[in-house]
Design a protein around this nucleic acid. Structure first.
Lengths: 250, 250
DNA sequence: CGTGCTTTTGAGACGACTCAACCATTGTGG
DNA sequence: CCACAATGGTTGAGTCGTCTCAAAAGCACG
């Protein structure tokens, strides 16, 4: 079975088997994190670098007034995070939502590879660009959309992202999200999320399945409702991928 | 006079004169953009790379319902954007708020330098990490803070950021911001921004000066009000900057 | 078959929005 | 140098979306 990291990167462009193998060979060791445990803590110094092999995590920030804002979700194949290459005091925490299998990367080996293999470098750059796009989309969602659209939009994004890493692509959200998690993601209260979700369910756009997991019944209908750009995250193959090697090894 | 790019990068860590010169030498040409004109348009393909030498710009997104969300402001010394290294269809626009002087970069030369000079590579990585931090802070601001705190927090950030690029550090916001711009940044309406700003002015935290420019009269007081972490953006020198060269040229 | 957690539902409050009128500033042409 | 237009800012009144608090209902697990 292919690693979700490779699956995801291959949505960006060419990543040959040799490059993929080289990337996977940067793995130092695997680590299993229990649900609810932290992969990284606010104000802690870290210089670790890893990707998510399985399970979901959340990147969030606790505020002085006790509130919480989830900044992003981390799904299988996501890298967390290039910031780890720099030794900074983290301004946020990362917590496992389910059991999470991490692949820790050997930074030196990783940088070496980045330096030597243009395919890997390009893929990783794509990955960073995609992640920034996700953050921007999140800003728009929270800043200028109603609760209903926010929620629909988030669910669509998660379903799409999990598919990129090899997860289900049939509308089922593979992880049970509590109302509180969705609320902290969307800048709402759990109560209001509950109401809004009921509304979507009443209209048959979404159903609640076993273990509290959600399923989008009609992705296109929901996407229309949510002003969701289906090209988002697609990031089709570029017409002319910039050749990082060309410059680097000239 | 030193370029704001160099000033800003030097807040991150060591960037010697040789490295700084090399970075500036990547400049292909300068371009002046009139206020209100776009540096980059939503859905357009771009593969340009440049930094802001003077003036302010905004990165924003227009929604289907006619609303606008400002994603970030671009100040002198900011790079816009590494994404330009990849040929993607932009999901947002960038518009000059004032007259803006751009320094266009020769991508090939830039990548070469990134590849060869570890000091430059480290600085740029810092820069990317800082930018991500700004986006995250923006999410928290919009998601979990009241109008009053949002506004205060934004002003504090802008004042700090302009100082990093060599602008005033005395609390004066060097560019006149319309209520609408602040509103589109903060996910509010111009009317409500007006009211909120009046409130801050009535309390003497902020004053309105000539040409509609704002001045924060007591930065510390406002920072306390706004739950603003003064370490934010500081990004003090790392204890042990990871040596990108060490791995790359081993 | 409790026990603890999450979800749902209801009622009322409040922050931010809308619409609309008026005011202030700046720039322009007579 | 003034009158005027254009733009952006302020203020008021009423509405609406989301929040708060609280209680009850589901659900999972020991």
């Amino acid at each position: 079975m292919t690693s979700p990291l490779i699956l995801r990167l291959r949505h960006h462009g060419k990543l040959g088997d040799r490059a993929a193998q080289a990337l996977l060979a940067c793995r130092k060791r695997n680590r299993l994190v229990e649900p609810g445990h932290c992969l990284m803590r606010q104000a802690e110094r870290t210089s670790s670098l890893f990707w998510i092999e399985s399970g979901w995590a959340m990147r969030y920030r606790n505020l002085a007034n006790g509130r919480r804002q989830i900044l992003n979700m981390l799904l299988p194949g996501d890298i967390c995070d290039l910031q780890g290459l720099i030794d900074t005091r983290a301004d946020h925490s990362v917590k496992a939502m389910t059991a999470v299998m991490l692949c820790e990367v050997d930074p030196a080996r990783f940088l070496q590879l980045l330096h030597d293999d243009p395919e890997v470098a390009t893929s990783l750059l794509w990955s960073v660009v995609q992640e920034e796009g996700i953050l921007r989309e999140h800003i728009v969602r929270i800043g200028r959309r109603s609760a209903r659209v926010r929620l629909a939009h988030l669910l669509l994004e998660l379903v799409r992202r999990q598919a990129l890493g090899g997860g289900p692509s049939d509308g089922l959200v593979e992880v049970a999200l509590t109302r509180e998690v969705m609320a902290d993601c969307l800048g709402l209260t759990p109560v209001h999320v509950s109401r809004t979700l009921s509304e979507l369910r009443r209209e048959g756009l979404v159903v609640l399945e076993a273990q509290g997991r959600l399923r989008i019944t009609d992705i296109d209908a929901l996407a229309r409702e949510a002003d969701y750009d289906t090209r988002y995250l697609h990031l089709a193959r570029p017409d002319h991928a910039l050749d990082l090697a060309g410059a680097g090894q000239a």
